[in-house]
Computed example of a mutant assay.
Amino acid sequence: MSTEQQPQLALERLYTKDVSFEIPSAEVFTKEWKPELNINLSSTADKIDPTHYEVSLKVVVEAKNDNQTAFIVDITQAGIFLVDGVEDERLPYILGAYCPNILFPFLREAVNDLVTKGSFPQLLLTPINFDAEFEANMQRAQMEAAEAEGKA
């Protein structure tokens, strides 16, 4: 019988960590709706204790209509993940891609709910391939490290 511990990975808590919705001027409701969207998405991971991490996925969406800010929505969706017995080399992928993949549908729903309750048309964020983004970020970091090493 093996005494080796099986890796554990589980979402233990899901919550909205921060939320803000702003409509700077009601004048936006009197104009034809032709929005220009600026969407910024980021994620962070913080170790809470030896087996738990808080992973946060933050989005800021600014909608402009006729060069005037129509609304700004800023939401951070977070989760507490149990991560135990996972190899150190797998941890960046889990925290940087796997966990954000789990959080994104909840973030997407929260954005849409706020926008529609603000009396605007539905806003469904396009699904994101966090695996591909993680790989691209890793390759970019490796290239930057190689360039920095070459300059030294």
Rank of each mutant, 00 (worst) to 15 (best):
E87F: 06
V59R: 07
E87S: 14
Y93L: 09
P105Y: 03
D113E: 13
T69W: 11
A97I: 01
V60D: 14
F81S: 01
T69G: 13
D74K: 07
I102H: 12
I94K: 02
I75Y: 02
F106S: 05
V61S: 10
T69P: 14
T69D: 14
L107W: 00
D113P: 03
N112P: 13
A63W: 10
Y93R: 07
A70G: 10
V61C: 13
Y93W: 09
V61E: 12
T69A: 14
E109T: 06
G79D: 05
I94H: 01
T69K: 14
Y93M: 06
L57T: 01
L114K: 12
A78F: 01
V111M: 04
D84T: 02
V61P: 10
V60W: 07
P92S: 09
V111I: 14
P105N: 08
T69I: 13
T76H: 08
P105E: 01
P105M: 09
L91M: 11
F71M: 13
K64G: 09
L95S: 01
T76G: 02
K117R: 15
N112G: 13
I80D: 07
E109I: 01
K64Y: 12
V115N: 06
L103P: 00
G79T: 00
A70C: 10
N67I: 03
I102Q: 09
Y98R: 09
C99I: 04
L107C: 09
G96R: 00
V83Q: 04
V111F: 02
D66A: 15
P105F: 05
Y98A: 12
I75W: 11
G118H: 04
F106R: 02
V59Y: 08
D74F: 09
V115C: 02
G96A: 04
